[in-house]
Structures are given as C-alpha cells and as structure tokens.
Amino acid sequence: MNILISESESKSIEPCPMMTITVLIPTYRRPNDLVRCLESLKHQTRPPDEVLVVVRDSDTPTRSMLEGFDVASLPLKTVTVSVPGQVAALNTGLDNANGEIVAITDDDAAPRPQWLERMESHFLTDKSVGGVGGRDWLYDGTQLAEGADGVLEVVGKLQWMGRFIPHHHLGAGNPREVDTLRGANMGFRRTAIAQLRFDQRLRGTGAQPLNDVAFSLALKRAGYKLIYDPEVAVNHYPGAREEGSRYEFNASACQNAVHNETFILLEHFPPVQRVIFLLWAILVGTSEARGLVQLVRFLPREGAIGVQKWWVSLLGRWQGWQTWQQCRE
C-alpha cells in the first residue's frame, strides 16, 4: 500500500535535531586495546562526526598501528602531545575537538552500539545538562570481572564529609543526577565546558588520579547538571598503568591519589565543610585514604603494611593541603 503525504503535511515534519559529536581518546602504548576501541566506534547507531586520538610523541607502537589501521568510514584524526600524563592528553584533545559534544573514553574501553545515541539524547532533552556518563562494564579477558555484574542505585556521589561513592561500573536503574562522572565514559556539552580544562596541578605520572572528579565538580560549581545513565554503556578492559598494578599497593600512586583528593575537595568545599572534611579525613578516612580509625581497623590484619598505608595517606593529605594553600597565594 502506498502512503501519500501532501505538501502541507510534509512541511510539518521536522528532522530530528542532532549535535555534532567528537569522540576523544587519549592513548599511550596500548595499540591492541586502541584497535578494539576504534572498531567499536564503527558500529555506533549514531556515528561520531569526529574521532580524535591523542598520541604521545614517543609512542611508536601506537603511531605505527594507526598508520596501518583500516579507518573505513571512521572520521579519524590523530593529535600528538609531547607532555606526559593523561591530563595533558585530554587538554590537547579538548583544544582540538570540534564537536558540540565531546565524548571521552579510554583506549582500553569499547563503547556499546547505542553509546553516542543515548548520550546525545540527554543533551538534546535538557540544555542545563553539562555532562553525561554511564556504566563501564568491567571485563577480565572475555568474561565479566568478578563482582562486575552487581547493581547499585547510588553511584557518582560526594557525601557531605568528603567521602566519594564512585561505583560507576555498578550503576543500574533510571538516569539520574550525580556529582561525578568516570573518565572511561563521559561526555560534555562544548558550551558548558567553554575554556574549562583538566587540572594540571594534579599529581601522577600516568593517569593523574581523580582528574575526572575535579572536572566534574568544576562543572557542577558552574551550575550544570551531570547525568548518569546506565544505558550509556561501555565495556572496559582495564589495561596496565604507568604507576604499577591496579590491584597492588603502590606508595607513590596512593600518595598522589590522596594528594589529589585533598586538593580537589579543599578547592570545592566552602570553609565550614573544609574543616569537617579535614577532621573526618585525619580521624576516620577510607580504606584507600586512611585516617586513624582505618589504621586501627586494618592493623591486626596488615601489620606493618597497614601502618605504611596510613602514613602515606597522611603525607598525601599534608601535601594536598600545601598545594591548596600555594594556589591561594
């Protein structure tokens, strides 16, 4: 059966609005992971308008892979950065991105087919939305990592005393507002971030810990909403880090992470809340950034290593305080 549409009816039909999208991928010496990531972008139900890969000038394996990669219809561009660290790579990417939405993922992630389509829908629905992220499904090889099939309602929140509830890899349920997004799966409205860049004052030799948290909180302070939607999903195959294993204690990595957390929250909180945070951090803390209560809790089980973790956390707190003070001068 043929369906005829009159001229007057055809004029009333408007095309679905769209925003141009840049996918930004910082990468360093993980060419096989990057191939998987790029291949996943070829299968997006809403194709990207630009794919920007930021490569270190010394990363010969990745540069060689990209020279021989079959881009097919992928609008792939490569940008080179000479400064080490994820923050420098992300900022270089932001400086070169042309999209109205900048969607960021890691080289060891593989966005699911509806990633960009679902992300874009939130920006189109509400102009006060400055950032959108979702679940990153953690994999160990070809299988879901142990515990990665769990579900939580509360993710990406910052509690009043300064304790973070991340767990973006376990979020389930409906889209909702959050305080922070995760670096492996987040996108931002270009007009919202304007000249905002990832904080170069954060410490770390590779992926400066919590750079995504600092960026998220800065956007919140500017008055924009951050939306977490579990259907904005990527598969995440955590790769090796420059500061050692993700699952073994590394004193330098721990100290840098605690420094960054302390500095970020001192900058984010108002005066009274800063005092509360510092008291809570020194007296209680968490299993990753330990205060006195956590020292006592883990001492019978860990012994000397538990004392070391507490001491490294204390040093990180002190150094974070110093960095914040210096930035106020």
Rank of each mutant, 00 (worst) to 15 (best):
T323F: 05
L279N: 07
M119V: 11
N91Q: 05
E288T: 11
R221F: 03
H268V: 04
L124N: 00
E120C: 05
I165P: 14
F277E: 01
T78R: 03
L124D: 07
E117N: 11
V155C: 09
F188W: 06
E248P: 04
I264A: 01
R328N: 14
V83H: 09
G206Y: 11
D33S: 15
T60N: 04
D49I: 15
G183I: 01
E14K: 15
N260C: 07
L66F: 09
L24N: 01
T323S: 10
E329T: 13
D107R: 01
Q208V: 03
V272H: 13
T286A: 08
H168S: 10
V296P: 03
P209I: 10
R246C: 15
G320V: 04
G134H: 05
W324R: 04
A222P: 12
A253L: 06
H122M: 00
F188V: 09
T80N: 06
Q114Y: 08
A97R: 00
Y224M: 02
G133E: 05
F69V: 03
R317F: 08
G150V: 12
P111F: 12
D212F: 07
R203P: 10
E153I: 14
R221D: 02
Q44H: 08
L279P: 10
S313M: 00
L295R: 12
L196T: 06
M161G: 14
V51M: 10
L265G: 01
V79P: 09
T45C: 12
G150P: 10
K11S: 14
W310F: 12
